[in-house]
Write a protein that binds this DNA or RNA. Structure first.
Lengths: 179, 179
DNA sequence: CCCAATTAATCAAACCTTTGATGATTTAGA
DNA sequence: TCTAAATCATCAAAGGTTTGATTAATTGGG
């Protein structure tokens, strides 16, 4: 817009990060290029992995990615209150509410009123839900393995360490969290 | 479900990864725990960063996260064909098509038929779109900086390197890509 | 003991995404 | 040259997300 340096004609999902960082530095000299590159790359890598998992494993089995996340959480930590499910599967209470309609309709989970607090909801897997996660997770984990093979074991460790450190910094960064 | 080891009562978005990996190993001994931990952590870290950027920067300014991505791509690499915009902003052609309706209605972008190929669409920012990205990106980049401060400069570099290596492995992993 | 503030869940409207189908154009091969 | 295959964009249906109400139940001072 400001300058008319023609962008390379062969821009791809991959090469765009480098191009974008350089161009942004020219347009806006005050930009924090390293931070920009980090967030851009983080977003891209994740989006590739998740798209692969969802489209190659879960959709063909009749689950969406969010649906899988909920069933997965209930498999490992359920039965539990809806509030907790929302928290650990990383979605808002409202989003979970909508999602549960589908999962309940498909017979994968059961909604029940909690004993101790009649406002609260107790969620649990049905037999069908249990079956779905068992088969789905094996396939899911095989794809995770395939992705992980790109890195050496120490590199995987280091990646996890850095991501955890990044998340831990969210407090200092005063990040906004999902309510 | 199989075993009835009660999950810790204080499960949070953060602590769930450790808990889940351990529990999955007990339920399914053949699981690739390292790969599972890597993908789970990657997903969580990204989701925190993106949620913060979207809810604290873009939504208050009237843009969704996908809307921002498109305007951002057009700012740096535009004007360009819709096909390229979809590619570099990481969405399918169909998703972009729907998104453009909103952006066009809000007067941020212009859709035009391409000269050389009457099937193709040429996209460009309007003055309003240009204004939106200038202000929005400054605030966006400030939040990126705040996140990046959690890591040392060399750590940021290493994180980016590892993420790029992971993405490069998608070929070997035979990952499915967005069409 | 009672009412105000909180908290759990849901609803509603607006949006974005996915897959699969349909309409135009363009390209390539017989 | 002309038709079959490929390509670009859009549509349609089903689903999930966000923010901002709204309803029901619980809690905590006064």
């Amino acid at each position: 817009m400001t300058h008319n340096t023609a962008p390379p004609t062969d821009l791809t999902f991959w090469s765009f990060v480098d191009y974008a960082v350089q161009k942004a530095e020219r347009e806006l000299p005050s930009v924090d290029a390293e931070a920009m590159r980090m967030v851009l790359t983080l977003n891209r890598a994740t989006s590739m992995v998740i798209y692969d998992l969802e489209s190659s494993v879960h959709r063909p089995r009749g689950l969406t990615w969010p649906g899988f996340r909920v069933i997965f959480a209930l498999w490992l930590a359920g039965p539990m209150e809806a509030k907790t499910t929302a928290e650990i599967s990383g979605m808002s209470r409202a989003a979970l509410s909508a999602l549960l309609n589908t999962l309940e309709r498909d017979g994968l989970i059961v909604r029940e009123r909690a004993e101790h607090d009649r406002r609260a909801l107790q969620l649990s897997l049905t037999e069908a839900g249990y079956g779905a996660i068992l088969g789905g997770f094996r396939a899911h984990n095989r794809r995770e393995s395939a992705w992980a093979e790109a890195l050496e074991p120490e590199e995987r460790h280091e990646l996890v360490r850095l991501l955890n450190k990044l998340m831990a910094g969210s407090t200092t960064a005063q990040a906004k969290f999902r309510s």
